[in-house]
Amino acid sequence: MITVGYFLIAFGAFFYFLGGLGILRMPDVYNRLQAGTKATTLGSFSVILGVGLVNLDYLPKALVIIAFIALTNPVGSSVLARASYLKGIKPTDKTKVDEYKGGDEK
């Protein structure tokens, strides 16, 4: 069980690294937001679950924290993306489709 926990922590650290790399490499706000949120969500899940498996006393608290992250992280990312869209920040030239045009005025 402890080995699985350490493996999960290493896995999560790798995804954190990928998130940081994505923030450096991606061309505009929206792609960076996706890299910074999706990769680190999975990384946080793995790290917290790994800590819960290494020390079994922490397991219930770890599960509660995972539920909270699953609730809050996508909401934060969505709000940031919408705010930067309404502020008028353009996506890169490679982005072809803009499905949010017109927004939620209806």
Binding site: L71, T72, P74, V75, S78, V79, R82, D104
Partner: peptide, 16 residues
């Protein structure tokens, strides 16, 4: 109007 996703999720998150 504020963000739809924010409005819905606050109903779940605020009591917690």
């Amino acid at each position: 109007l504020p963000n739809f996703i924010l409005r819905v999720s606050v109903g779940i998150l605020l009591p917690l």
